[in-house]
């Protein structure tokens, strides 16, 4: 595995976010949240390096391609990178059943924060349904993305829990 793999995989996800998939209007928030989720996961997996500056730069690229205000997704990625790398902030053994609630809490806060920031940006309450839909989907997809990234990293999922997650020892 090269040191650039996390950044490269998130870059692919950012480009995929901009591609016209033809998703319904309600599903517009899902793909950018997948990018944020990948940042969180790469930061949580030990032995991988995704610098916060790289996470912010990739978020900024997502902002550029989306045509939205610059700094929004950069901020989201930065928050995810900060929370994802906090060793032992909740418990020492951070396996899936610990990571998942952390992600659930984080993405819920990010969704609420994003909705509030967007409303503040336009000085009116924006439609909350696509954000809620995106947040719920991001919560449900978390194990798939996490184990997908583990597979990308090592080519296999069956590691012992001790070696998979940061601060597992």
């Amino acid at each position: 595995m090269t040191a650039l793999l996390p950044a490269f995989s998130v870059l692919i996800a950012v480009i995929a976010t901009a591609v016209p998939w033809g998703l319904p209007a309600d599903a517009t928030f899902i793909l950018p949240l997948l990018v944020v989720m990948m940042v969180f996961c790469w930061r949580a997996i030990p032995g991988t390096e995704l610098h916060p500056a790289a996470a912010a730069a990739l978020g900024l690229l997502a902002d550029l391609l989306s045509g939205g205000p610059l700094g929004f997704w950069a901020l989201m990625c930065l928050i995810a990178a900060t929370v994802g790398a906090k060793p032992g902030s909740f418990r020492e053994r951070r396996d899936l059943w610990i990571q998942w609630p952390i992600w659930t809490a984080l993405v819920s806060v990010l969704g609420l924060f994003g909705w509030f920031l967007a409303s503040l940006y336009y000085l009116r309450w924006i439609d909350w349904w696509p954000i809620v839909f995106g947040v719920v989907t991001a919560i449900l997809l978390f194990p798939v993305v996490l184990y997908g990234l583990l597979w990308v990293r090592s080519g296999q999922i069956g590691h012992s829990r001790r070696t998979i997650f940061r601060s597992a020892s």
Binding site: A18, L23, A25, T28, L65, G67, G68
Partner: peptide, 15 residues
């Protein structure tokens, strides 16, 4: 042709 689709809480736009 539409080459990018930018939709989120802020914008509905296409490139």
């Amino acid at each position: 042709r539409v080459i990018a689709d930018a939709r989120g809480p802020f914008v509905r736009s296409a490139l």
